[in-house]
């Protein structure tokens, strides 16, 4: 019965993400019109179900007369790039430091743990905005900011899990068996910590999507020309009383992406955890 439930979560969450990824990859083929094309006659055009809609602009147009649907499709690209690249880099940095702190102990552990404490005492949103304002705007700065801020999330969990694993008897067996420290860390500890890291990665990807949206909402992500969900929300916020749909559609997509990643994470957690699987 549990097997059936975990399949449901992984399939729905993973399926939604796959569709999103395909949309991002195939954006130029899928988008009905050029996302940057302005047509002032179509300004704030309503979506298809409303009275004076235009059939060529299924989800309406924004304040510059740009097609909302095409912009949504193209904006999936920066979201996907940030989710994957920032998610994976954060995972690598945080996991490496967490493994080191948990396995080496001593001064290494003290220094890394103290850094985690200092890091987490800043409000993350403010820190992200500050970092990007300092490094300069653009997708790469958004990714750098996410990695620099969120590595603590992995580090904390991986460190305590590594500590727990090193207490176990199989590690003693490996030491007696003559394995070197590095080999124990990578061949014995890492595989046991990995399921947890993968679950965290799905959560980190959802956080990355939100942070990218927040930064482009504040105007600190990619340049305002190329569409992003956060940028579209910010533009929609300006004209919310005349055209609420400009803001609602990108919001809905962010929500779907975030929920899908969380669902996938939940599904993977039950699927990968031998204790919960029983």
């Amino acid at each position: 019965m549990i097997g059936a439930r975990l399949n449901w979560r992984i399939f729905v969450g993973g399926g939604a993400l796959l569709m999103l990824a395909l949309t991002a990859i195939l954006a130029p083929l899928l988008a009905p019109v050029d996302p940057l094309e302005q047509d002032l006659f179509l300004e704030l055009l309503p979506p298809w179900w409303q009275a004076d809609a235009d059939p060529t602009r299924a989800l309406g147009a924004d304040s510059l007369g740009r097609d909302v649907l095409s912009r949504l499709i193209h904006a999936a690209r920066p979201a996907l790039i940030v989710a994957v690249v920032a998610g994976v880099l954060t995972m690598l940095l945080g996991t490496a430091l967490g493994l080191l702190a948990g396995y080496m102990g001593g001064m290494v552990d003290v220094v890394i743990s103290r850094m985690v404490d200092i890091w987490t005492s800043f409000p993350p949103v403010l820190l992200a905005i500050m970092l990007v304002a300092l490094i300069g705007t653009g997708l790469h700065s958004v990714i750098i900011a996410i990695v620099l801020i969120d590595w603590t999330r992995f580090c904390r969990v991986v460190r305590s899990e590594t500590l727990a694993q090193t207490e176990m008897e199989y590690i003693d067996a490996a030491v007696i068996g003559g394995l070197k420290r590095g080999a124990i860390l990578f061949r014995e500890v890492l595989p046991n910590v990995l399921p947890l890291v993968i679950v965290l990665l799905t959560l980190e990807m959802s956080i990355a999507i939100i942070v990218e949206a927040i930064l482009s909402f504040v105007g600190l992500s990619v340049s305002s020309d190329s569409p992003t969900w956060g940028g579209m929300i910010a533009e929609g916020r300006q004209v919310i009383h005349q055209a609420w749909w400009v803001m609602a559609f990108p919001m809905g997509l962010i929500l779907i992406a975030v929920l899908a990643l969380n669902l996938l994470g939940d599904g993977l957690k039950t699927a990968l955890d031998p204790v919960l699987r029983r």
Partner: peptide, 23 residues
């Protein structure tokens, strides 16, 4: 609770504006 844990304050704020401020 599961739903609320997944959705960040950023999205709540915008959704509230949309529903109780505009619609």
């Amino acid at each position: 609770n599961g739903f609320t844990l997944a959705v960040p304050d950023f999205i709540w704020a915008l959704a509230l504006i949309l529903v109780f401020g505009v619609l």
